[in-house]
């Protein structure tokens, strides 16, 4: 399988986005949004993880089967969260 070459420019761009998202996390933490603080922080963290997986870990350029592996992992995490929350939200 030929290795995909990613341009240096793209790497720096992603790095810049990641750093600004870090700043955004910090900024949001300074504002009191009640329970939305944690939601926002997790949403930003999730987007950052996605960027790392897609570009730094080359998932975007990987075969479908490799992408499916990530989807399976997320799906199983979904099972864990969904069924656990079915307990916590109905106590």
């Amino acid at each position: 399988m030929p290795e995909h070459i990613v341009s240096r420019k793209l790497y720096f761009l992603i790095c810049g986005i990641l750093l600004s998202l870090t700043l955004l996390t910090w900024g949001v933490a300074l504002i009191n949004l009640g329970r939305w603080n944690i939601v926002l922080a997790l949403a930003i963290a999730f987007s950052k993880a996605t960027l790392v997986a897609l570009f730094f870990m080359h998932l975007r350029y990987s075969p479908r089967r490799t992408q499916l592996t990530l989807v399976a992992g997320l799906f199983w995490l979904g099972i864990l969260l969904l069924l656990t929350m079915s307990d916590y939200l109905t106590r």
Partner: peptide
């Protein structure tokens, strides 16, 4: 992977979750 809550029927899990599991 969808059945684990049956280990927790009398552990304090919600009745709703227990029924699903």
């Amino acid at each position: 992977f969808l059945v684990w809550g049956h280990h927790m029927f009398v552990a304090g899990q919600s009745a709703y979750a227990a029924m699903i599991f």
